[in-house]
Design a binder for these strands. Structure first.
Lengths: 212, 212
DNA sequence: TGTCGCATACCGACCGGTTGGTATGATAAT
DNA sequence: ATTATCATACCAACCGGTCGGTATGCGACA
């Protein structure tokens, strides 16, 4: 759930500018903590434009989760680790990429879907479902590689799908812990969690040497 | 960060009733999504009582994090796993207890400090610090056992403190993932994450058989 | 070619309700 | 008599959302 502004094309329409503003402000202040007027100010549009494109603030939240999902999904789909021949290497390659993407203050690497669902899981079913799609979609993208790795190494007692969910859990947990830190220490604490996840997989898949 | 109402004495003063209401409503709706009037309604007191005991809504947030920290800290400090002779068993005992405490809808087992910090880490330094104390305090309570386990097993490349932080990260991540699910599936998904954490520790500390 | 009909995109003033917070007073214990 | 603990009444600011209106563009048809 990472790519920053630089990875995406600059938004042109009011709708895209609002979605971009939503990503930025929700990561920094949360959803309930961000007003429609603030969103409009950040996007440089008016309230009229906002409610022309979105039926409600909740609808903007849903659209932001989908927008986030689409842009991060595309980013990871293009990543070079997919071309590695060994499935275990592909999994570790994903984790290493996630580690490399963590840097700066927490709001620059944390996840919109995770923030949204933590606030709105009970008050808005639509937002909960959109966040679920985003996070579980990320997990599903790892499932094939993890399944292959599980098969290849003869692992028992778990599945690729379950391990893929755990990857997402550790990432989300890393973001929460990072937010407890002052700006300077946030990224290090988050990376530490991904490093533990990596060690878990190295132990599980019996990979002693490390690459990268 | 678990104990439910049943673990704590019934609140008597208006202050305690407000803190109890804060725990309940923040877990369900988040901090920004909960109004002062709602808090007062849940606690059965008036706004006058609220602002007599707390200088601001933010101050209530800080106090709620501290209240949460104190009650959960006391609960885990009393748990029987501390009497196990082997430090690895104590660590696994903690995880098993956490797994046992997960059940019902997400708002009944998730963490107030994690929810607070996710929303308010940038807008309120006081809340961020209070949440950090809560979460890292939980980690510190595990540090001695994990350090002993690391020493006993001759683990290299990490420390008890780092592993203790990872335990908290997985717990927080489990809660975020749980909130993406409909009520019926939330607890299972959260427990799955703790099971992976347990497997990590079993692999790391070379513990093949399992107890419990 | 011009223009009519209509849809899309957007503006900004405005509305009723809610928000966090305050001022003041009542009650009861010390 | 004083102080701690609340209740009542109230306020200005802000909230999400609405509404009447404008600018632009596009296809149909005379």
């Amino acid at each position: 759930m990472i790519p920053n502004r630089a990875f995406r094309p600059a938004p042109v329409t009011a709708r895209d500018k609002l979605l971009e503003a939503a990503v930025k402000l929700v990561r920094r202040q949360g959803f309930a903590g961000t007003s429609v007027e603030q969103l409009c100010g950040e996007a440089g549009v008016t309230k009229g434009a906002f409610f022309h494109h979105f039926a409600s603030k909740e609808a903007l939240g849903v659209a932001a989760a989908e927008y986030w999902s689409a842009s991060t999904g595309a980013f990871f789909a293009e990543a070079p680790f997919h071309h590695l021949p060994d499935p275990v290497d592909r999994v570790l390659g994903y984790i290493d990429l996630r580690i490399a993407l963590i840097g700066g203050p927490a709001e620059s690497f944390s996840c919109v879907a995770g923030t949204l669902v933590q606030e709105a899981f009970r008050s808005s079913a639509a937002i909960r479902v959109a966040a679920e799609s985003s996070i579980m979609g990320n997990a599903r993208a790892l499932e094939a590689d993890l399944d292959a790795a599980v098969r290849q190494c003869g692992i028992e007692g778990t599945t690729g799908a379950s391990l893929a969910r755990h990857v997402q859990a550790v990432i989300q947990g890393a973001f929460v812990l990072a937010k407890t830190q002052p700006e300077s220490g946030a990224a290090d604490l988050a990376r530490e969690q991904l490093a533990h996840l990596r060690r878990y997989f190295v132990l599980l898949f019996g990979r002693d040497a490390q690459e990268e």
